[in-house]
Design a protein around this nucleic acid. Structure first.
Lengths: 209, 209
DNA sequence: GTCTTTTTTAATCATTTGATTAAATCATTT
DNA sequence: AAATGATTTAATCAAATGATTAAAAAAGAC
């Protein structure tokens, strides 16, 4: 053996280009609607290269799915676990981080939601996500605030659902919203920027006892 | 010509059975992932019958898509246009109707959201939905309440987005929510039932000046 | 009951699509 | 620059899939 990682041959990084192309196409069309030929064309390489590097469409998809889930979950989990920030600060952080993430990558929410529908087991059966989130510092702080009478006594699940709903849904529904609201991309993004400040205000208002 | 509508031949309604099966399968798997053979099997009929009655997979899908969109939009539009109900009552009606609709047919939100992604133009370019909704009685009542100082001055778009987010998102995300929250179907439905009362409370709290 | 029309089926086509193969090209080492 | 191994391609395969066809079966008209 000699060159195990010779770096990229032709221009620079065929393998990386394929993965990037796969990310783009899978995110935009979903697994079932993407053809391996679409990915090859998007990457500007031959179809056989895809199978050479990634063995199959399924394997390639699993990689993209896993990375996307990690990217999406990491922002949330890191905030949820933080011992240093208050309940209010966490609410603000979640809104800001998620909206920024989704402005940068607006296809993510619908991609995750629709692909998980056919796939639930694979991704969550291993990960104890229920425990991690529902026993997190965030939820403990929320429960403490309830016991102190500082916020209304509503299930933490509703609280999380509301925060995610207000943050994520507009991006999942953006094609419809742009039509129904008659919005250009610019205006839609402006609206989402506003929500970084507004969502924490609305959430806190809903918590008033 | 003689029998134009001879009613159904074999058991009762092959055409209807195919449409019902198509609805089930399309809603569950989306257009790209469903095979015409899946629909035929679900309907308990031969594959050729599907093409005999509906000409093609595309035509059949268009019918299902159109009917589903109508079903989904009708509940909303009829409330929005109602001259007899107050702003508060409309908020309550939207929450109740939509949650009931989606408990009965939980696949609808994700089906609509993901299919529209590849299809925006077809369904909205004809329909002046933007005008219908944004000039509805509902929005006029909201604007009036702002001018009267009864509610905070926030864009009607945010208001609609929030109402839809809190109502629809949990169903779109239900596979994930059930995993993350460790919920059985029973418990999930119970949570959604609670939201029929809670969402109007939260929305109204967020409107307080 | 016979005839005509409608409904249903089995068999088959043509295309699409994921994947493989064998050979050619390129890069690196010596 | 020759040899070796890594990368890339064109050509091709086999299975899946949407659609059609021709004939059989059922239903209705007379």
């Amino acid at each position: 053996m000699s060159a195990k990682k010779v770096n990229t041959p032709k221009d620079q990084g065929a393998e990386a280009k394929i993965k990037e192309a796969a990310r783009t196409v899978f995110h935009k069309k979903g697994f079932a609607a993407t053809r391996t030929r679409d990915i090859a064309e998007e990457a500007g390489i031959n179809l056989a290269l895809l199978n050479y590097y990634f063995r199959s469409k399924n394997k390639l998809f699993e990689i993209i799915m896993m990375e996307t889930m990690m990217q999406f979950m990491h922002g949330m989990v890191s905030v949820f676990k933080d011992e240093e920030t208050s309940l209010d600060e966490k609410i603000e952080l979640v809104a800001i981080r998620y909206i920024d993430l989704m402005i940068a990558d607006p296809e993510i929410p619908l991609f995750i939601l629709s692909e998980i529908r056919s796939n639930v087991d694979n991704f969550f059966d291993n990960i104890p996500l229920a425990k991690v989130l529902m026993n997190s510092v965030f939820i403990e702080q929320y429960k403490t605030a309830i016991q102190a009478g500082e916020v209304k006594d509503v299930s933490p699940l509703h609280f999380i659902i509301n925060l995610m709903s207000l943050t994520v849904f507009p991006f999942a529904a953006s094609p419809m919203l742009k039509k129904v609201g008659g919005l250009k991309n610019e205006q839609f993004e402006q609206l989402m920027q506003e929500r970084k400040k507004l969502i924490p205000i609305w959430i806190k208002a809903s918590l008033q006892p």
